[in-house]
Computed example of a mutant assay.
Amino acid sequence: MPTMWLSDSQKVGVAFCSGGGFFLLGGVMMFFDRAMLAMGNILFLAGLTLIIGLQKTALFFARRQKLKGTAAFTVGILLILFRWPLIGFLVELYGIFVLFGDFFATIAGFVANVPVVGPYIAVVLEKVSGISRGGELPV
């Protein structure tokens, strides 16, 4: 299977991000299990750092227009660790939408190619991001 242009550390980062997503999904399915949500957050942040590097990760979270999302994401993680998993997850979800909202249009373009359900998911992602297919991309 071709691995395209990813280095070895980026491949590990993709695995960590995927594992973090699965742990977050499992934590939600287990009625907001605090340990699974915390592990998902740790894996996601470690994977993101391995994919784009430590300096770029710090610059991404420290951008002026992303500070509200960074604060919400951090407070959400802390609330999960301080035994408020439902409220912490909701605050963290808001932070994720603010931080990664620019990428939803790009993700929608890839998801639209998935058979059967892809076009429906793409429409939802485009509505959430507020960018139409013919509109300008955030890049």
Rank of each mutant, 00 (worst) to 15 (best):
F104T: 01
T70E: 06
P2G: 03
R63S: 10
M39F: 15
P138D: 01
G53W: 06
K11I: 00
R133Q: 07
V28G: 11
G109V: 00
G95E: 04
L79G: 07
M30K: 12
V111S: 06
S129A: 11
L93H: 00
I77R: 03
A105E: 05
F110D: 05
T3G: 13
A38E: 03
T74F: 15
A105D: 06
S132A: 14
G109F: 08
S129G: 14
F82T: 06
E136K: 13
R83W: 11
L59F: 10
D102W: 02
R83T: 00
A62W: 13
V28H: 12
G40T: 01
L90T: 00
F97M: 13
G40C: 02
K127D: 05
F23M: 15
M39N: 08
F61H: 07
G40K: 10
S7V: 00
I131T: 03
L45W: 15
W84R: 12
A108K: 08
G20S: 07
R34Y: 07
V12Y: 13
G47Q: 03
L78T: 01
I96H: 14
G13L: 02
L43F: 15
S18L: 14
A15C: 06
D102R: 07
A15H: 08
I51P: 09
A58E: 05
A108I: 01
K66G: 04
L86Y: 14
S129F: 05
I131W: 08
F23Q: 03
A112F: 08
M30Q: 12
